[in-house]
Amino acid sequence: MSTRHILLGLLAMGPRHGYDLKHRHDERFPQARPLAFGQVYTTLQRLVRDGLAEVEETGSDGGPERTMYRSTDAGARELADWAGSVTPSAPFVANEIFAKVVVAILSGGDPAAYLAAQRASHMQRMRELTAVKSAKDADLTTVLSADYALTHLNADLRWMTTTADRLATLTAEVEST
């Protein structure tokens, strides 16, 4: 995830303090890891260095000094390029579920039992996410983020179901010979 582009995106709505940006980020991306303040300020300084953002004003209101940042035209172009660019489609997906099934097959374990248990866990998570997005007060970002997670869990589930079917077929073939 590109923190730099997400901050540029948040600045596109108008000038902001670093403090504001952190809170808006955490609010807009509730399922993501919250940004650390240090990370926000470092990223803002880099954006300024690269000419993508600039300091609007520095004030203190009697408290600690606070710097307000705004996006530059170059920043707006950079943001539009990033948001419109295609993310490379991964040629292969390697993950722990796949690895565990392969290891279970290689070591004479019980991949079918593992797949059934993993399926139950995925379904439980899918029910939780469905409840989150079906809540009456769910905002659009929450719904979209739950949809995204649900779709990926569902892809895992479909792979697990096909794999369980393939294993059952293979076992039946081996036993009948």
Binding site: R119, H122, M123, M126, R127, L129, T130, L153, N154, L157
Partner: peptide, 13 residues
Amino acid sequence: DATIAAYADREIR
């Protein structure tokens, strides 16, 4: 469809 089944409280397989 598992995304539809996720609206339920539990699943019978």
